[in-house]
Simulated assay, not measured.
Amino acid sequence: MKFSVPDMSCGHCAATIEKAVKTVDASASVTCDLEKHLVEVGTSTTPEAMAAAIREAGYEAGHVPG
């Protein structure tokens, strides 16, 4: 699943988001594209739960369908 995270702009942001995702699913794979402001998460957890975790870390997160 992919999320648009417009405020993600640096490695610290990406690390914070990855940590937040891993608190929900420790086995999730996380890829952050700083240039496109996209986070891709490989998990069996729901998109809503992942978006909530990213928001709790302080970033807006919109699920990108597809």
Results as ranks from 00 to 15, higher is better:
Met1Arg: 00
Pro6Asn: 09
Asp7Tyr: 04
Asp7Pro: 00
Met8Pro: 08
Ser9Ala: 03
Cys10Gly: 11
His12Ile: 06
His12Met: 01
Cys13His: 07
Cys13Tyr: 05
Ala14Arg: 11
Ala14Leu: 10
Ala14Pro: 15
Glu18Val: 14
Glu18Gln: 14
Glu18Tyr: 06
Glu18Asn: 12
Lys19Arg: 13
Lys19Pro: 02
Ala20Asp: 06
Ala20Met: 03
Val21Asp: 08
Lys22Leu: 10
Lys22Ile: 09
Lys22Ser: 13
Lys22Tyr: 05
Thr23Asp: 11
Thr23Gly: 13
Asp25Ser: 14
Asp25Val: 15
Ala26Phe: 06
Ala26Thr: 02
Ala26Arg: 09
Ala26Tyr: 03
Ser27Gly: 09
Ala28Thr: 04
Ala28Asp: 12
Ser29Gln: 14
Ser29Pro: 00
Val30Gly: 08
Thr31His: 03
Thr31Gly: 02
Cys32Leu: 10
Cys32Ser: 15
Cys32Thr: 14
Asp33Glu: 15
Glu35Arg: 14
Lys36Met: 12
Lys36Ser: 12
Leu38Phe: 13
Leu38Trp: 08
Val39Ser: 12
Val41Cys: 05
Val41Ala: 00
Gly42Phe: 03
Ser44Ile: 06
Ser44Asn: 09
Thr45Cys: 05
Thr45Leu: 09
Thr46Arg: 12
Pro47Val: 02
Pro47Met: 00
Glu48Ile: 12
Ala49Thr: 15
Ala49Ser: 03
Ala49Glu: 14
Met50Val: 10
Met50Glu: 00
Ala51Gly: 06
Ala52Glu: 13
Ala52Phe: 04
Ala53Val: 12
Ile54Trp: 04
Arg55Ile: 04
Glu56Gln: 07
Ala57Ile: 13
Gly58Ser: 02
Gly58Val: 01
Glu60Cys: 11
Glu60Asp: 07
Ala61Val: 11
Ala61Thr: 14
Ala61His: 04
His63Tyr: 07
His63Val: 03
His63Cys: 00
Val64Met: 09
Val64Trp: 04
Val64Gly: 07
Val64Asp: 12
Pro65Asn: 06
Gly66Tyr: 15
Gly66Phe: 11
